[in-house]
Design a protein around this nucleic acid. Structure first.
Length: 299
DNA sequence: CACTTGACCTGTCCGC
DNA sequence: TGCGGACAGGTCAAGT
């Protein structure tokens, strides 16, 4: 579920609440969510303190003072929920749940207990998410990190770089390129649709057909949309609540995502939902036209 | 190599 | 109300 802006929002919450906290215990309720040897966990996690919290793409990086890092990927349905020592929910969780903590629940996969009494619950309904331990010295080479493209808000995500990637992936639908984490890190399905609408490019266009002017619009749009997402604290719906405890409100702001059947805010045409690159895809047929007809009428 | 598809899971929603 | 099927925000491995 979470894309770059959601993960960044969670990162900020974690940085505030767990930096400097000592980890007193680790409970793994579902083994594949945190496939680490118990002996290793006891040696490098239990008793260690969280020295800082980082993010790369959609991966959360908790740096421990043991020389190891704890990586977390939330995939589709992962959540981080922080609970105070007295059991009251400090942050995170499902918007429909009461604030009274009744955790762990059936989707809790891992629990970190801090010496202060705070607890961090890693909930993940669909079990796609994971936590992993990596020596800090090997972080850059880790499989989850090493193939990631530049952060879209970083200086190395230049227009020139984007143009090169569009050329390399000329045969793919532009939407597939935006979702490819080796091209750029942090963009997911929502922000891909939003960026393409803002830059007025049809999601099924081949990347190679995108003009220089369109590329420039797209480059700007991706940065603007991701920035807005972070400013609004991420997108909030079924599974997402940021770890500061407030709901993100970006979904209220979307231009096309989950707005099929409603009027485009720019031109008033009806937003369409279709399937591109195997993913649910929303766009405005008037703002984002296909330049050439896909199926030629028989004549 | 570039690109597509299926698999990983559980839950929900929609049509019959 | 129950049941089958499609679908859900992300990545991989394996296929063409």
């Amino acid at each position: 579920m979470p894309e770059g802006p959601e993960v960044e929002t969670i990162r900020r919450g974690l940085a505030e609440y767990v930096t400097g906290q000592h980890i007193a215990g680790v409970d793994v309720l579902f083994a594949r969510s945190f496939a680490a040897d118990r002996e290793l966990v006891e040696r490098v996690v239990v008793g260690a303190a969280v020295s800082s919290v980082h993010r790369r793409g959609k991966v959360l990086i908790l740096e421990l003072d043991s020389g190891w890092v704890l990586l977390i990927h939330l995939k589709m349905t992962g959540q981080i929920i922080l609970v105070k020592a007295d059991g009251g929910r400090l942050a995170g969780g499902h918007p429909n749940e009461s604030m009274a903590a009744d955790l762990p629940d059936r989707s809790t996969r891992v629990v970190l207990s801090f010496a202060s009494g705070k607890k961090l619950y890693f909930n993940d309904q669909r079990k796609f998410g994971w936590m992993r331990l990596v020596p800090k010295s090997e972080l850059a080479e880790d499989l989850s990190i090493r193939n990631l493209g530049p952060e879209v808000l970083g200086t190395d995500f230049s227009l020139e770089y984007l143009r090169g990637q569009l050329k390399r992936r000329a045969g793919s639908p532009i939407k597939a390129v935006l979702l490819d984490q080796t091209v750029m890190a942090g963009v997911g399905n929502i922000y891909a649709d939003e960026s393409l609408h803002l830059s007025r490019i049809h999601p099924a266009r081949r990347a190679g057909s995108v003009s220089p002017a369109e590329s420039a619009r797209l480059h700007l749009a991706i940065r603007d949309i991701i920035t807005a997402g972070i400013e609004h604290g991420g997108t909030s719906f079924s599974h997402y609540v940021d770890s500061l405890g407030g709901k993100g409100d970006y979904l209220d702001q979307t231009r096309v995502f989950r707005r099929e059947g409603t009027a485009c805010g720019v031109c008033g045409s009806t937003i369409i939902k279709t399937r591109v690159a195997g993913r649910g895809t929303h766009y405005c047929p008037k703002c984002q036209p296909l330049p050439k007809v896909r199926k030629t009428p028989a004549t």
